[in-house]
Structures are given as structure tokens and as C-alpha cells.
Amino acid sequence: MLIGKVVGSVVATRKDEKLGHQKLLLVQVHDHTNKPKEQYVVAIDAVGSGPGDMVLYATGSSARQTTITEGRPCDAVIMAVVDSWDLGGDNVYEKWKS
């Protein structure tokens, strides 16, 4: 899985009907030192995350392994909202501080 920050949402009324009415969020990829990268992904939200949240998202066919994205043309799903992570013991990101 990769780390990203939800920076926006995507609205598309005309889209493949198999996508259904799932929330599409725009995620900017962050690297492990919490530096934003110029890389964005549109992912279906499966855990109730929103703009400003640091999240984890899974890609590829693993993204279809949730009750929300099963059988949908989806290759990226947000499956966790990050509280904190550390590298070698030093916290890099803490949700309560950001």
C-alpha cells in the first residue's frame, strides 16, 4: 500500500454505471518521509476518509477486494486513515499534531 493525502474529490455524473455511487477522492502521493510527490490518484473511499486526511490506498486488483469495490472497474481504494507512522522509532507523521 502507499501513503497519500486526500486533497480533493472527483464528481462524475456520466461514468461507467458499474462504478455506482461510490465516493471518488483525489489523493496526492506522499513518500515515507511525508514529502508530497507530484503524483495523484483517484481512489474509491472505503473507510469514510475526507479531504485533509492522510490515508493508505491499495492499487491493482487488490483494490476490488472490499464489499464496496467488488466487481467495479476500480484499481485504487482508500483502505485506512493514517494516525501515525515512524521510521526507525522516530515519528514522521502524527495526525494529532498536523
Binding site: 500500500m1 515515507h32 473507510v47 469514510g48 493508505l56 485506512a80 493514517v82 494516525d83 521510521l87
Partner: peptide, 22 residues
């Protein structure tokens, strides 16, 4: 393995599964 990640709000099937940075 270089770090650990904590996410209390996550997909229900993943409860209790440790997340680690590699």
C-alpha cells in the same frame, strides 16, 4: 523493515493486522 504505521480507522477485515514500512 524500516518502520511501523498505525491506522485505527481502517477496513474492517484488517483489524489486528500490523502495518509496517518496508
Amino acid at each position: 523493515v524500516v518502520g511501523r504505521l498505525v491506522a485505527t480507522q481502517q477496513y474492517e477485515g484488517l483489524r489486528g493486522v500490523p502495518l509496517q514500512l518496508i
